[in-house]
Amino acid sequence: MSAAVATPRGRSTGAPGARSVRRGRRALGGLAVLGALVLAVAGCTPTTAPEPGAAPTIEVAGDFGIRPTITIPDGFTVGETSTATLVTGDGPVLVDGQSVLADYLAENVTTGEVVADTYEGLPEIRTFSVDDLGQPLYDLLEGATIGSRLLRVELGTDADPNPHVLVLDLLPLRAQGEPLEPLPAMPTVTLADDGAPTVAIPDAAPPVSVASTVLIKGAGPQVTLGQSVVLQLVAVRWSDGAVADSTWGVAPRAVALADLPTGLLAGLVEQTVGSQVLVVVPPADGNGQDTLVYVADILATGDVAVGPSGTEGQPGGDPTAGATDAPTG
């Protein structure tokens, strides 16, 4: 049987007889659509038998975290569903029940139609479980490490004779970049092995205006007004050091910048993806009640709307916490 093969971190060869799949729009159904597609494939038989001879290859070009370019040779046939690891990440292995932050592109092999695409918006926040992902996608991710790029090529079926190709990036769940020295007199931050921060409040009066310092400088794109972001964050009250809000141990949070308190917004705009930023927000620029110390890891940014309760696959802020909600009055 012929099987699809990908070129890790390679380039499209541009050889005669090959076509590059076009850039497409973000699909509304997300991983739910992919899960349904994969499940439909899993229980069906291919509509055509594989042809003998040397198999042409699907090539995937582009760096991890950047929208890939998929090149499919003319006459390419899929003889069996196959998977491959194109880039092996140096992060931890996924464990059951943990959060997954994934960017992915899925294409119809025959027509080049985009089935799903998150790279033009925000990555999806999911849980590594069979219930959330479905068995085939769970199997694809099982044993994978954060920072990996994975490939799945799926058979056509009697109901849908066209095969599909999926490229998926497992994105970091914590800040990644260059550690920097914090500004003096700011709260101190220590990190657990998984990146979760613990904040120590200094024995001093809180600042009367917004103050921020970059603890880790990421190399990703810059956050701009009007966008939405995916964050890992903790918010701690200056008065007693109590945690007012945290995504750690729950899931990263997708939120529109416009829905953040003005002080936190000021601390995040113009920072870069991959960065960890400490922002001290007095009541007037925050929730109206407490001076809050935020430690925010910026995991992604995109020109896409996110509602207060999140979009499909994008958990929003906890409306009871008050730490990431702008005051209404």
Rank of each mutant, 00 (worst) to 15 (best):
A6E: 00
T110Y: 05
P46G: 05
T85K: 02
Q276E: 11
R149T: 09
G43P: 00
G29P: 01
E107P: 01
L191K: 09
P73T: 06
A55D: 14
A200F: 08
A326V: 10
P172V: 03
Y294N: 00
A256S: 14
G10D: 10
K217I: 00
K217S: 14
A256C: 04
S12T: 13
L264Q: 03
P50K: 08
L257H: 03
T47C: 12
A32P: 10
G29R: 13
D158V: 15
E51W: 12
D74A: 14
W248Q: 04
Y119H: 15
T157N: 09
L168N: 03
I58A: 02
L37A: 13
A36M: 10
D259N: 03
P50G: 10
D169E: 12
L133R: 02
A84E: 08
L105D: 01
A40M: 15
Y104K: 07
V109F: 05
V199N: 02
G316A: 08
A296E: 05
P161T: 08
L94A: 12
V100S: 09
I66V: 15
L141Y: 13
D325P: 00
A266M: 12
E124P: 00
T188K: 09
A211G: 12
A175G: 06
D103P: 04
V229K: 00
E142F: 07
T85M: 06
A326W: 01
L171G: 01
